[in-house]
Design a protein around this nucleic acid. Structure first.
Lengths: 114, 114
DNA sequence: CATAATACCTTGTATAGCAAGATATCTTGT
DNA sequence: ACAAGATATCTTGCTATACAAGGTATTATG
């Protein structure tokens, strides 16, 4: 996955970006991400969304996984950013900045009544 | 189409928002929108994207159309914002603002070191 | 009359988000 | 020991979108 192809896909999913960002502080497991995003307005997702998404990130080599025993319930599959994931994250966050700038220009230009 | 359903669909398409915004200054025809967006970074689209999208906006009652003769080439189908379209546009632009704020918070919180 | 330019529309493909359901493990109550 | 519930992952089936490519129609030009 390259930045250019990500730009193409951007409109179909800022979720990849969001997930990569919340993994920045350290490993999380799937359900934990769902719960964390429940607290963020407009970013609530379900399990049917997160697991295929994480599989994709893993297939793309952006994250790696590790099973960890839990003292309650099933073992958890923790996801961590790979080196590629970290690199892409930097690029993606930059691209997000210019993308929103483009759109905000468009909104201001037309909305501001020139 | 309501704001709530739009929020759900947001990640799948900021294009609706973009089109509604460029129609704010007045009517445009399909190909003209494609050409105008060619000049905006990251927002280049093709005819296979714009026409189904415009049909959808029209079916949703957000725009109305008008055929206008051209002195060169085929007659053009001009699209204008309906009253519903204008109302939704205001709501959408507001929702876009809070959506980007959510994401920027996430990026800053994790990227800025807590 | 053929070719090019303009403009609109449709078809087929790939992919994403999601609700709902399936599967597996561990804890708790009886 | 056993059923019920909680935790956690994964899959299936549906709907919708973006897009490349191709099709249709009108007018101008060589």
């Amino acid at each position: 996955m390259e930045v250019d192809t990500w730009k193409v896909q951007l409109r179909k999913g800022v979720l990849d970006m969001v997930i990569l960002n919340i993994l920045r502080d350290g490993a999380l497991y799937g359900l934990e991400m769902v719960q964390r995003l429940e607290e963020v307005p407009d970013l609530t997702i379900s399990e049917g969304t997160i697991y295929p998404l994480l599989s994709r990130l893993r297939a793309d080599g952006l994250v790696f996984t590790e099973w960890v025993e839990s003292d309650q319930g099933r073992p958890r599959k923790y996801y961590s950013l790979s080196k590629n994931g970290i690199e892409l994250l930097e690029k993606i966050n930059g691209a997000w900045g210019s993308f929103t700038k483009s759109i905000n220009n468009l909104i201001d230009k037309n909305g501001g009544g020139i």
